[in-house]
């Protein structure tokens, strides 16, 4: 591609690949935009031209990922910690599904999620294989950050950038080269406000959002702007966020949702749950009719507790509950 680039002017380059501006900026050549007539071969050395070619090729394949969409991920069983065969031989999770992962600490939940992230090919301690759309995936899923299979959300994550919500989302949209960033920013912000009980403005600094507001913004942002088809959630706190709606947003944005949780409401909201024991997937359970009925009851219980929280916050006494 660098041969083709040589003869282009700066203006032609940016007209065809607007995102080349980011590359020029990162390489300390932002001032080139002031010389639209300049021919690239005259202003960039051959090494930089070659890198520019690589960058454009990467970005093009990155933007084109929607054509080769991930519609399902399959995990082929390997072995347990004691070397015996993993009981679950194959688990396929499709777009729009929620699978919960349960098991005691140290049982191998993290390794399962790491196997998915690293798209294992029998080369991890568990010997598992991970397939994307039924096929053995290529190296790009391991080493190109543009192709990261898994996006992660956990309660330990915080915003660290000193930016307002608007600036923060604009920065993320820009790094993703998202089409129509304004619409996406508005959508993320309004969804996040629906998820979080307490509203916040686009001009609020992200570092001053409450726990619930932060989580709401992270979920809405991951749903809309993250390129990763799989979203891995490590619990969602029960305070200050509508968890059911949060999951619905992710599903609606065609994500595959994996959720490590021991919260009964979240666990029953999953389409299936995988039990992990002794380093292996020991069972896959589909919620029974009775469990589904219990979920309704658990939700009522939850709503009652929530109501008590609100009353406490308003300064009321809880003599009658």
């Amino acid at each position: 591609m660098s041969r083709e680039l040589k003869s282009l002017t700066v203006e032609e380059l940016l007209a065809r690949w607007p995102f080349a501006q980011q590359f020029l900026g990162d390489q300390g050549h932002e001032n080139l935009t002031d010389q639209p007539e300049a021919v690239l071969a005259e202003v960039l050395d051959s090494e930089l031209l070659e890198q520019l070619g690589d960058f454009l090729a990467d970005m093009e394949s990155f933007l084109g990922t929607s054509e080769q969409k991930v519609s399902e991920v399959t995990i082929r069983g390997g072995r347990a910690k004691d070397g015996s065969d993993e009981s679950v031989r194959e688990l396929t999770v499709k777009v729009g599904e929620i699978v919960c992962i349960v098991g005691p600490t140290g049982s191998g939940k993290s390794r399962l999620l790491a196997d998915i992230e690293w798209v294992a090919r029998g080369d991890t301690p568990t010997g598992r294989h991970v397939l994307i759309n039924g096929e053995v995936p290529g190296d790009k899923w391991r080493f190109d950050s543009e192709y990261k299979l898994v996006a992660q959300l956990s309660q330990n994550m915080n915003f660290v950038m000193d930016l307002t919500v608007q600036e923060f989302l604009a920065l993320h949209a820009e790094s993703r080269q998202a089409a129509d960033p304004e619409e996406k920013i508005q959508r993320i912000w309004s969804w996040a406000n629906e998820l979080a009980g307490e509203p916040f403005g686009l001009d609020t600094p992200v570092t001053s959002l409450s726990g619930g507001q932060s989580r709401a913004l992270m979920i809405a942002d991951t749903a809309v702007l993250s390129a990763s088809p799989v979203v891995l959630i490590d619990e969602i706190e029960n305070a200050g966020i509508d968890r059911q709606q949060a999951l619905e947003i992710l599903i609606q944005q065609e994500k595959i949702v994996l959720m490590a949780t021991h919260d009964p409401i979240l666990a029953l909201m999953g389409d299936r749950r995988v039990i992990i024991a002794n380093g292996a997937m020991s069972q896959v359970i589909e919620p029974s009719e009775q469990e589904k009925a219990n979920l309704t009851e658990l939700r009522e219980l939850d709503a009652r507790l929530m109501g008590l929280r609100h009353r406490l916050r308003r300064g009321e006494r809880l003599d009658t509950i």
Partner: peptide
Amino acid sequence: IVSQAEREVFAARVRG
């Protein structure tokens, strides 16, 4: 300890 968005922005800067 940082958000998914920050990880993605950071990785894109590294790639740049």
